[in-house]
Every structure is written in C-alpha cells, then in structure tokens.
C-alpha cells in the first residue's frame, strides 16, 4: 500500500515521469563514466599493440584463479542487485529488498578482499612499477607499462566497487526506514544501474588483464 506521503518530487506529475527523468540522468552520468574508463582502455590497446610479447608475459603473472572467482562474484552480485531492484519496483516488503542488498554487499565485499590479496601478492612479487620492479623474461620497461595499466585500471574499478558498497549500505538503511516506497524504488533503479555498470567495466577488464598469453 502506498503511504500518503509517497508523492512525486516537484516538478513531476507522475511517478513514471519522475522515473524516466531519473533514469535518463543516470545514463547521462554513465555515459561520462564510459569516457572516464575509455582512455585507459585505449592506452591498454595501444601499448599492447606495441609491446605484444611483454604484455603476454606480464599477463601470465596475474592470478587467474583470483580474477576468475572475482568475475563470478561480481556477475552473481549483479543478479542479486537485479533482484533487489525488482523487489523495490514491486513495492514488496522492505525485508526482501534488504536481504538481496545484503547478499550483494557480501559478494562485493568478497571481491574487494580478493582484490586486496592480489595486490599484496603482486607487490610482494615486485610487480609494482618503480625502482624495485622485476619480472623475468620480459623487457622491464614494457612489462612495467602493463603493470602500471593493471594497477591503474583495476584500482579505478576497485574505487567504483567501494563507492558502490558504500551506496548499498546507505540504501539498506533507506529501505528499512522509508515509507515512500514508490520514490525509493526509483532511487533503487539508479543504484542498480550503477552497480551493473561497474560489472560491465570488469567484464572487459578481466580478459584483457588476466587471459593474455595463457595459451602460449
């Protein structure tokens, strides 16, 4: 049942109008996000074309099991986020939304944990670009370029995941407290778009970072 205070925000005259405007604004933001990550992907493409051997050798030094598990975690977390958005849109009991969001939070938290384990492993192995960088069998300058892009791209992605986890935590509280379910469901739709976008970036990062040079 809709709560009396659950009305549209001005200047909107209907929820569907408000939903359309909010979603359009979110996609405007996501378009900017595409262009935030885009140049890093372009840099990766250009340097991989120029330094193919070093990139393949360096790629083999990433932890494919950790990367693969992390990909699965993010894909499943997108599924649970889609369920949370669905429950909110159906104006279901807030406990259902909270449950799906909590699972998403746990899966995203596990992603961050595994990524931090990878970073510590790579820093320990001397793969952090800088004076102490060493990697056998590849031109060190070129291999450092791979690991510079690796830390930059996965780091920026990880930042987005952490921001997403913060937002999910806020939305768990909102879901528990709000009586304006229709308005809340519009906001949930945007949270879902953000989380799926972060998943989308990883879908392209994973093969570029982890899968190069495995067959050789």
């Amino acid at each position: 049942m809709s709560h009396p205070s659950d009305s549209t925000a001005p200047p909107f005259t209907s929820f569907s109008q408000q939903r359309e405007a909010a979603t359009l604004g979110m996609w405007g933001f996501l378009g900017m996000e595409v262009l935030f990550f885009g140049p890093m992907f372009l840099g990766y493409i250009v340097f991989r074309i120029n330094f193919p051997d070093a990139f393949m050798t360096a790629s083999r030094h990433t932890l494919i099991l950790a990367g693969g598990v992390n990909t699965a975690l993010l894909l499943i977390s997108s599924f649970t986020m889609a369920l949370a958005v669905r429950s909110a849109n159906l104006l279901e009991d807030s406990a259902k939304v909270v449950r799906s969001l909590l699972v998403t939070l746990l899966l995203g938290g596990a992603f961050v944990g595994i990524k931090c384990f990878e970073y510590s492993h790579e820093i320990h192995e001397g793969l952090l670009p800088g004076a102490s960088f060493h990697l056998d069998g590849a031109d060190p300058q070129q291999a450092q370029m791979f690991f510079y892009l690796y830390f930059l791209m996965t780091g920026m992605h990880l930042l987005h995941v952490i921001i997403g986890l913060g937002l999910i935590a806020v939305f768990i509280l909102r879901a528990k407290l709000t009586v304006r379910k229709e308005r809340f469901s519009i906001a949930m739709e945007q949270l879902g778009l953000y989380w799926h976008f972060v998943d989308l970036v990883w879908v392209f990062l994973f093969p570029l970072i982890y899968l190069g040079g495995r067959a050789a």
Partner: peptide
C-alpha cells in the same frame, strides 16, 4: 530517448578508440 542516451554513451567511446 533512453536508448539514444545509451547508444551515444558507447558511440563516443567507439569514436575515441
């Protein structure tokens, strides 16, 4: 309109690359 926004977002990326 939304589809246009989605398309344009990735269209700029295609131009960039």
């Amino acid at each position: 309109v939304l589809r246009l926004f989605v398309f344009i977002g990735f269209f700029w990326l295609a131009l960039l690359i």
